[in-house]
Design a binder for these strands. Structure first.
Lengths: 159, 159
DNA sequence: ATAAGTCTCTTGTCGAGACAACCTTTGCGT
DNA sequence: ACGCAAAGGTTGTCTCGACAAGAGACTTAT
């Protein structure tokens, strides 16, 4: 155990708590969305990002990037959403390799219907627990972490 | 979308970034441990908690609590660790319903061998990205969130 | 005693994501 | 033009975790 730089008690405590939050928070978000709307957090995220895009449309690659996801994962999720009528696929006219994902009217309605409850959960579990100053601090801290975690939105894996 | 309290731009930005970190950080930790030691982050966490306990032993329920996990999940993971010789199960003498999970010598060696690389990853991706002041802020913020996420503070005394 | 209820843990099933293999299209070098 | 590598997506397989159901063991009330 020696020979490695250890953590100070303060650092260790902060880390353990961050670890716990990172473990528990996704479960809470998933749980609310699953219970109220039969949606995964990630499924909601996909539709939310589409709803913010011009024409409610994005290429699969772009959608994968904004949702911090891989293409295979996204492809599966879009298939599910497509079978439920929330999203449509269409070949991209300018590049025949590419596929556009488009939010249907039903999908838009679903997002509109889902958003308030989701935001309320986010407020309840995160935002309302913090002072305005802490929200600012949180933003800065997460930004610092993302510079390493997600330098260019491109995650490469070495086998 | 109206009728619900929305988020201010500052709050929204902080949330989106927290969302990204919560999505990406577990993948990074898992990746390092999987690549270097063929361990899941959660498997490592289980063994680490055992290694910090007296006799390197904990009851399954207590272990589930300190790892923020459910009993079924833990049971499956312990089965895997047992088949790899890192953990042993034994019936609790005082309560025959209960099961004690015990870290074997091989398990202890595995933890000792794994810890430095894991800590280094934590430093690299989290601690070293932040000022001391930010570490303190992070600790306080996470503590605030855990009051809602984990009301029964699972860092209880060990039986 | 004993029956009901609770605690502790395990098992089986099912859905979701990681990873690899694959196919098609595009771009690039020569 | 042609051949090859890279980009864009999809599909199949396997593992892990969620959830529900179940089997023992302890507790309590009658």
């Amino acid at each position: 155990m020696d020979g490695a730089r250890w953590l100070t008690p303060e650092q260790l405590r902060a880390w353990i708590r961050l670890e716990a939050v990172v473990e528990l928070l996704p479960a809470v978000l998933d749980s609310q969305l699953q219970h109220d709307e039969q949606l995964t957090h990630f499924e909601y995220l996909v539709m939310a990002k589409l709803s913010e895009s011009p024409e409610h449309t994005l290429r699969m690659t772009a959608l994968a990037a904004t949702t911090n996801s891989t293409l295979p994962r996204l492809s599966h999720v879009v298939s599910r959403l497509e079978s439920r009528g929330f999203v449509e696929r269409s070949p991209c006219p300018t590049d025949r390799r590419a596929t556009n994902a488009h939010l249907t009217e039903a999908g838009w309605q679903k997002v509109v219907q889902t958003a308030p409850g989701h935001v309320e959960t986010v407020r309840d579990y995160v935002i309302d627990r913090l002072t305005d100053e802490q929200v600012t601090q949180l933003d800065e801290i997460m930004q610092a972490l993302l510079q390493k975690l997600d330098p260019e939105n491109t995650l490469r894996r070495l086998p």
